[in-house]
Design a protein around this nucleic acid. Structure first.
Length: 420
RNA sequence: GCCGAGAUAGUCUAGCCCGGUACGGCGCGAGCCUGGAAAGCUCGUGGGAUCUUCCCUCGGGAGUUCGAAUCUCCCUCUCGGCGCCA
């Protein structure tokens, strides 16, 4: 969330930001009115409390009629405080609710635009694969090789779930290991957090409340299935104050992710959009001054994986209208899938500035005697597995229906060069 | 699932029975002292505000009271013990 002071002192900046993000400005006006009323009442209650505090001490030294009179007088003061508190509690709920629903302020380098059509192409790397035969769709390849079993996945879980099998399962594991090993070399510490997360964690990174309908909810235990490893990893440091020397902290994790995909397109066949998918995630906790430079590093960490896999890809800088709620700047990295000549988002690398840190209360102390400040958080996929799998199957397919294993993965596949 | 013990500031802790400005140690910082340092001494070290001052803060919430860290109730988490168990 944003610093309430910025909203109070620069409401027009926030209004413009909401417009740039293609969002309703109602939330801002609601905040401003609830906030000013809340502040006025806070002020009044502070004065009343001061009186009560002083008189309470006096009462303790009195007795008899004098004491009785004061007690009666104070009963009234306390009653007023209590009534104000009740009103303030309501106002505070509105205030908090608004704060949790105001998105992060985009960085000045972010293009203003209404939706994904106005994202900016940063670069395209690697030539699109040319075929001397008609390339097959990834699901055709996978079914023919018996490495993905769609029907049996549906049988045990439901529509939108699938089962990897044989070399498919092994290829998945090879990719996970390759990603994690590469991130270890890039300086990340591997973690393996819980797959189930609570509301506090989801609020900390910004998925709750605005994405709550897209998550699987375990009602009986008030817990959610992890929507992205960003949530458990970032919140590992919830409510902590770090020493300056501890920064930066780099974590990576492999973790299954779950999405209900309520507005799911009917035409997404195969494994491009599924309810459960594996992902390797990178999260960085950094000094505020460095975060925009770090974003470039993070993006490079993701790109390095794709380059090593030899896949054609492109990098987009998202415009204000397409950026997600919590980030101030975001790059999407998309892999080319030749069967339909489409680009598949395999990584999203974002700077959240202090937006998540403020929600999750993650701070650092610049110097031992100075006040603590919020750190900056960043994260990026490195990478999402199913879409990487699609890109590999389609780009590395051969005329005879087999698939060549990318060289960097062979050592994770027992030296295997061909699946088929 | 049952029973018990806990949760106090960056950290360790006192206060709770018996309600009246949250005690102290460590760490860190500033100052005094010193040729310089150590030691010693003084002050500071959670959040907020309209900032010489004031308000809030003792795991969270509700209640009793003029007044709650302290009393009552509900909840969360941690640590033990028992039970169940891959």
């Amino acid at each position: 969330m944003l610093d309430a002071n910025i909203i109070r002192t620069q409401p027009e900046t926030i209004r413009q930001m909401l417009t740039d993000r293609n969002k309703d400005t109602k939330v801002l006006d609601m905040f401003l009115s609830a906030d000013s009323e809340w502040r006025a009442l806070t002020d009044e209650n502070n004065r009343l409390r001061k009186v009560r505090n002083e008189v309470s001490v006096q009462i303790s030294k009195m007795d008899g009629k004098e004491k009785e009179a004061k007690v009666i007088e104070m009963r009234d003061v306390s009653e007023r405080i209590k009534n104000n508190d009740a009103t303030m509690a309501e106002l505070d709920l509105t205030r908090e609710d608004c704060l949790l629903n105001i998105p992060n302020i985009p960085h000045s380098s972010v293009p203003i635009g209404k939706d994904s059509t106005e994202n900016v192409l940063v670069r395209e790397c690697g030539a699109k694969r040319k075929f001397d035969f008609t390339p097959k769709q990834h699901w055709e390849i996978a079914e023919a090789l018996d490495i993905i079993d769609f029907d049996r996945g549906v049988k045990v879980a439901g529509s939108g779930f699938y089962c990897l099998k044989g070399d498919g399962a092994r290829l998945e594991r090879a990719l996970i290991n390759f990603f994690l090993d590469t991130h270890a070399e890039q300086g990340y510490t591997e973690v393996f957090p819980p797959v189930v997360v609570n509301k506090a964690a989801l609020t900390g990174t910004g998925q709750y409340p605005n994405l709550k309908d897209d998550m699987y909810y375990l009602e009986r235990d008030e817990m959610f299935l992890n929507p992205t490893a960003e949530v458990p990893i970032t919140n590992l440091l919830m409510d902590e104050i770090l020493d300056k020397e501890q920064l930066p902290i780099l974590y990576t994790a492999y973790l299954p992710s779950f999405r209900r995909e309520v507005g799911k397109h009917a035409d997404t066949k195969g494994i491009i959009r599924v309810h459960e998918f594996n992902k390797v995630e990178m999260v960085r906790f950094v000094h505020p001054e460095t975060s925009y430079d770090v974003l470039e590093d993070l993006r490079k960490d993701a790109e390095d994986l794709i380059t090593a896999l030899g896949l054609p890809y492109r990098v987009l800088l998202l415009c204000t209208g397409d950026m997600s709620f919590a980030c101030s700047k975001c790059y999407d990295i998309e892999l080319h899938a030749p069967a339909n000549d489409v680009w598949l988002e395999a990584s999203s690398c974002s700077n959240f500035t202090d937006f998540q840190a403020r929600r999750a209360r993650i701070k650092f102390r610049p110097e031992p005697h100075l006040k603590s400040e919020f750190i900056h958080t960043l994260n990026g996929s490195g990478l999402a597995l199913p879409r990487t799998m699609v890109a590999i199957l389609e780009n590395y397919q051969n005329k005879d229906g087999t698939v060549t294993v990318p060289e960097v993965l062979r050592r994770y596949m027992g030296g295997k060069e061909i699946v088929g």
